[in-house]
């Protein structure tokens, strides 16, 4: 797990390795271990230096367990930055040591993807899926490959199939929300974000994204109020410390108060009805907090920010105090 101690060590090692003329193999090995533990990624660094490490004599005393983990790590990094030759070499080594292993098979598929052979990769994964029909690893690759190929609809379909079975995968729901947003299907994206909230209710960014998504396709007051509630929750969870949350909140209030807002389904219409539903105090406090944050972090921008807030909330009575 990523404790702050190990993160600082990672940063220090990275700086040392990138700047040194002759890199120390011990540092490289230590960095690779730390990156595995803390799950930090830096594809180019791992690929180049990892490859050098594997070729050097420093690989000999490394115990088997660690050695093959390093092979896997370097292979994945090489695939990510396109060093196909490096990746191929690592994966062949793994395949010869672990024949028939599903982990090695997935890596082989990734190498094929990286080298552009999409159909070959698809065939590899299909074969793996036949032997291990419930493997999460392979199902995820099926989604990734469609995304690589640029086929949004198939990716969505594949991810839906995956999530239909592994319903607890938070990352999967987040990815599906991204895909839907890319495809412009806001309502479905909102559904995915709600699932995310059910899995991780205390994470403020889920509420933030949900609020923003709802706001972007809301047409009547009820829907905007739902968005507003979620943005309030996001604000509470982040203790009012993130400007983006505050901006979204103000945008939502502004949208609700706008005279152009559509009449709500229950017949009441217009700005005054909206203002009855919500507590203007929140918007006022949010604008004050924004002012404070900008004054602390970036005073030059403060004036522009203030103007924007005025623009959004100026029409609403009691919203701003000076």
């Amino acid at each position: 797990m990523a404790t702050s101690l190990s993160l600082t060590e990672v940063a220090a090692l990275k700086a040392e390795i990138s700047s040194a003329k002759k890199t120390s193999m011990n540092s490289v090995r230590r960095l690779l271990t730390l990156m595995r533990e803390t799950q930090r990624k830096d594809a180019q660094l791992v690929s180049t230096h990892g490859d050098a490490f594997l070729k050097s004599s420093a690989i000999k005393p490394v115990p088997d367990e660690e050695r093959f983990l390093i092979y896997e790590q370097v292979a994945i990094a090489a695939c990510e930055c396109g060093d196909v030759e490096v990746a191929d070499r690592c994966v062949s080594r793994l395949e010869s040591r672990f024949p028939g292993s599903i982990r090695a098979g997935r890596l082989r598929g990734m190498v094929e993807e990286a080298s552009g052979d999409i159909d070959g990769a698809r065939a590899t994964y299909a074969k793996l899926l036949q032997e291990h029909p419930s493997s999460q690893m392979v199902l995820k690759r099926m989604v990734a490959i469609e995304r690589t190929a640029g086929d949004l609809q198939s990716a969505i379909k594949a991810l839906n199939h995956f999530l239909n079975h592994y319903m607890a995968d938070a990352d999967g729901w987040a990815e599906l929300a991204d895909l839907y947003l890319e495809a412009g299907m806001h309502k479905q994206a909102a559904f995915c974000l709600e699932e995310l909230i059910l899995i991780q209710p205390h994470t403020f960014c889920h509420h933030l994204r949900l609020g923003e998504t709802l706001l972007s396709y809301a047409t009547n007051l009820e829907e905007k109020i739902v968005a507003y509630k979620h943005l309030c929750t996001a604000c509470e969870l982040c203790a009012g410390a993130h400007p983006r949350v505050l901006w979204s909140l103000l945008a939502c209030v502004s949208s609700m108060a706008s005279k152009k807002a559509g009449a709500s389904s229950s017949g009441r219409g217009g700005a005054t009805a909206a203002m009855e539903e919500i507590d203007v105090n929140v918007a006022r406090l949010a604008s004050k907090q924004l002012k404070k944050l900008y004054a602390k972090a970036d005073p030059d921008l403060a004036a522009t920010a203030q103007a924007a807030v005025l623009d959004m909330l100026g029409d609403i009575p009691d919203c701003l105090d000076d």
Binding site: K229, H230, T233, N281, V282, Q289, K292
Partner: peptide, 18 residues
């Protein structure tokens, strides 16, 4: 409950932050 009182809690948090 969380959903209902979202506004009040946001207001409380913002006040504290200010």
């Amino acid at each position: 409950m969380v959903y209902e009182k979202a506004e009040e809690r946001a207001a409380k948090v913002l006040k504290r932050a200010l």
